[in-house]
Computed example of a mutant assay.
Amino acid sequence: MGKLTTHVLDLSTGKPAQNVAIELWKRNNDNQFVRIGQSRTNLDGRVSEPLLEGKEMKGTYQIQFKVGDYYRTNKLEQESYFLEIVPIQFSITKENEHYHVPLLIAPGGYSTYRGS
């Protein structure tokens, strides 16, 4: 059975990003994104449960990471907050695979990849 997971690592501290709000959106037949789930990262920077799992996973999704709130809450940048929300859009084509979408953040940028 397939699943979708994520984690967030703060490169500026070298530690997992705790308590980052995450929303999962799916593109519908009208080509609009609709929110279908939400979560927060735990002490290890991971979501405790998969964002999505089971049958009918095929589709186009967007994960929105609320990193601006994370930086303000943790006072990790003093003068300004460049990033507010990091949206990552991707497609799931094989519903029996594990899709892992990690986010590596820093105050001025981010990176992602398809993990395992």
Rank of each mutant, 00 (worst) to 15 (best):
residue 19 N to P: 04
residue 19 N to C: 02
residue 33 F to L: 09
residue 27 R to V: 05
residue 5 T to C: 04
residue 36 I to D: 09
residue 20 V to K: 03
residue 20 V to H: 00
residue 25 W to M: 01
residue 35 R to W: 09
residue 1 M to A: 12
residue 16 P to N: 01
residue 5 T to L: 12
residue 13 T to A: 05
residue 28 N to W: 03
residue 12 S to N: 12
residue 12 S to Y: 09
residue 14 G to K: 11
residue 21 A to G: 13
residue 38 Q to I: 03
residue 9 L to T: 08
residue 18 Q to S: 07
residue 33 F to S: 07
residue 5 T to Y: 02
residue 17 A to P: 01
residue 6 T to C: 14
residue 32 Q to K: 15
residue 30 D to C: 01
residue 14 G to C: 08
residue 3 K to W: 00
residue 21 A to E: 14
residue 12 S to I: 04
residue 8 V to T: 12
residue 35 R to C: 14
residue 9 L to E: 06
residue 28 N to S: 07
residue 29 N to K: 13
residue 29 N to S: 14
residue 18 Q to M: 06
residue 5 T to S: 10
residue 37 G to I: 13
residue 30 D to K: 09
residue 14 G to P: 10
residue 27 R to N: 06
residue 2 G to E: 06
residue 2 G to I: 04
residue 39 S to D: 15
residue 25 W to P: 02
residue 19 N to K: 09
residue 31 N to F: 13
residue 7 H to V: 00
residue 8 V to C: 13
residue 13 T to C: 05
residue 28 N to C: 06
residue 28 N to M: 05
residue 35 R to P: 05
residue 9 L to K: 00
residue 23 E to I: 00
residue 36 I to S: 11
residue 38 Q to Y: 13
residue 21 A to N: 15
residue 37 G to D: 12
residue 17 A to H: 01
residue 28 N to K: 05
residue 36 I to C: 08
residue 26 K to E: 13
residue 29 N to D: 14
residue 8 V to F: 13
residue 26 K to D: 02
residue 31 N to L: 14
residue 29 N to W: 09
residue 36 I to K: 08
residue 38 Q to M: 12
residue 23 E to N: 13
residue 6 T to F: 09
residue 24 L to R: 05
residue 21 A to I: 10
residue 32 Q to G: 06
residue 23 E to L: 11
residue 22 I to A: 05
residue 7 H to D: 06
residue 27 R to I: 05
residue 25 W to V: 01
residue 28 N to F: 03
residue 16 P to V: 01
residue 10 D to Q: 07
residue 19 N to M: 05
residue 28 N to R: 00
residue 17 A to N: 03
residue 12 S to K: 11
residue 16 P to F: 02
residue 31 N to A: 10
residue 12 S to Q: 14
residue 24 L to D: 02
residue 25 W to A: 02
residue 37 G to P: 12
residue 4 L to V: 08
residue 11 L to F: 01
residue 39 S to K: 08
residue 28 N to Y: 06
residue 21 A to H: 15
residue 5 T to K: 10
